[in-house]
């Protein structure tokens, strides 16, 4: 069980990742704030609590792996990598610029700590499952984590991957669903309803857990519970798109809107306020 102090620190880290991501998005002039905000606590728990990694040795063969299948949400991912020590925090503000190691979508060839390039939606879970299968076949005990967007689960490849992960018994694979219920064109239910996701993944042979995707203690509990499963684990995380910045919350418009100076100032003021509470 995490201590109160540990949880307080992880909450502060999540707040910092939001600040870092929004600042990077402001400097970039374009990008995807909404989905980056909704998965912040999941990333925080993985990179600052659960994952067995060595930032000073990004290609350590026995490290736990992470695949961001919803690659466009990378600003908070990059912030987590920077704050964990994979590269300098100042680099975050080069996001999306020519010659930057931080591409608009994750690029394993350019960014230390990125285990798999993603961006074309629906492909991340297959790669993550491939890594998990490799671990099984090689007798290695590393674990593989993947974050899926709910909108991207309309891609058929997600279901090919889901079927195969259960077929291969990949209980070292955990997929989080960032269930923020919004995608570019509107509400997931309206654009192409993929729910109920818990029943679907259960039917595909996975262990299904459900949690508040912004509750750090609940996420930690779910990730720990996942280690006891004999099947791949799907964690349905109830989240809010744009979480942490009131005027971005639950608004599809903030999927891919630019963060202007005015927006940044207002957002930072809100986040600073949260820290004082």
């Amino acid at each position: 069980m995490p201590t109160m102090e540990e949880i307080r620190q992880l909450k502060a880290t999540a707040l910092q990742l939001r600040r870092d991501a929004l600042t990077a998005l402001y400097h970039a002039g374009s990008g995807h704030p909404g989905g980056a905000m909704s998965m912040t606590e999941i990333l925080t728990v993985l990179y600052f609590k659960e994952m067995n990694i060595r930032p000073e040795q990004p290609d350590w063969a026995d490290r736990d792996r992470f695949v961001l299948s919803k690659g466009h949400a990378c600003p908070t991912y990059y912030a987590a990598l920077a704050r964990r020590g994979y590269f300098d925090v100042e680099v975050l503000n080069t996001l999306r610029k020519a010659d930057s190691i931080l591409q608009g979508h994750p690029d394993m060839g350019k960014t230390p700590g990125v285990d798999m390039s993603t961006g074309s939606l629906g492909q991340g879970l297959s790669a993550a499952a491939g890594m998990a299968l490799y671990a099984k076949k090689q007798g290695k005990d590393f674990r593989v984590y993947c974050i899926l967007g709910d909108g991207e689960c309309a891609e058929g490849q997600i279901w090919e991957a889901a079927m195969s992960a259960a077929h291969f018994g990949l209980n070292n694979l955990v997929a989080f669903l960032d269930a923020n219920h919004l995608q570019i064109d509107g509400r997931v239910d309206d654009v192409m309803n993929i729910y109920p996701m818990d029943e679907k993944f259960r039917a595909f042979g996975w262990t299904v857990l459900e949690t508040d995707g912004h509750s750090i203690p609940q996420l930690i509990h779910a990730v720990e519970l996942a280690k006891c499963s004999d099947k791949p684990v799907f964690i349905l995380c109830h989240t809010t798109k744009g979480k942490g910045v009131s005027f971005m919350e639950d608004r599809a418009d903030w999927h891919g809107a630019a963060v202007t100076k005015d927006v940044l100032d207002r957002a930072m003021a809100e986040l600073d306020g949260k820290e004082r509470v």
Binding site: A127, A128, Q157
Partner: peptide, 18 residues
Amino acid sequence: MGIAEANMYGYAAGIATC
């Protein structure tokens, strides 16, 4: 991998990253 080519090439990529 069964009749699921997209998934097969995704798995292959994941294995190759290791």
